[in-house]
Simulated scan of single mutants.
Amino acid sequence: MTQNNLEYTLNELSFDIVNGSQKDKEILRFIDKALGVLSNDGVCAYYVFCLSKDKKDDKKYSDIFIKKPMDKLKPFLHSKYSQIDKAEDFFKELSEDIYELLFFKESLEKALIYARYHAKAMGD
């Protein structure tokens, strides 16, 4: 039942994002920045932003902010995406379908907003 429930999946994803990160103020700042990049510049810019943070801070933001959302949202996309495991290929393929791209963007924005709530609820 929960596999087809988008709202539940987004809530679960947001919880996973916060739990997979260091529990400090830095995660809330990163979520805010990632949400800003996603909202203002789009999915591909979000992807590049998360990858750039991996190299700069020697952390695994891409696992938490790219791989997890990719895996959690695949069941809600066309079946052709389920066969793609490499993030770069996934985002390239996704960018070729405007409807899927916008769905992914809106869903990820919602998950990041939920993640902000989870991070704030866990305390400063």
Rank of each mutant, 00 (worst) to 15 (best):
V18S: 05
G20W: 07
F76C: 07
D57S: 12
L6R: 02
K68F: 14
G123H: 07
G36H: 07
K56Y: 13
G36T: 08
D71G: 04
L51K: 15
K60P: 02
L101Y: 13
F15G: 01
S95A: 14
K33L: 15
E26Y: 10
L35I: 00
D97Y: 07
D58W: 01
K92G: 09
V18W: 04
K33M: 12
S82T: 06
A121Y: 05
M122F: 10
A34H: 02
A119E: 05
G42R: 02
F49C: 08
I98G: 01
N5C: 04
L35W: 02
Q3H: 05
Q22L: 14
Q83N: 10
A34C: 05
D54L: 11
T2N: 11
D89L: 15
K80V: 14
F30I: 09
A34Y: 03
K25Y: 11
I98E: 14
S107N: 06
N11M: 11
D16F: 04
H78G: 09
L35M: 07
S79G: 00
K25V: 04
S14A: 15
S21R: 00
T2Q: 06
L6P: 02
P75N: 06
N5V: 00
L13V: 02
M122G: 15
D71P: 00
L28E: 13
D124P: 02
N4M: 08
E7L: 11
S62F: 09
Y117W: 06
E88F: 10
K105N: 09
K72D: 10
K60C: 06
K25I: 08
T2Y: 14
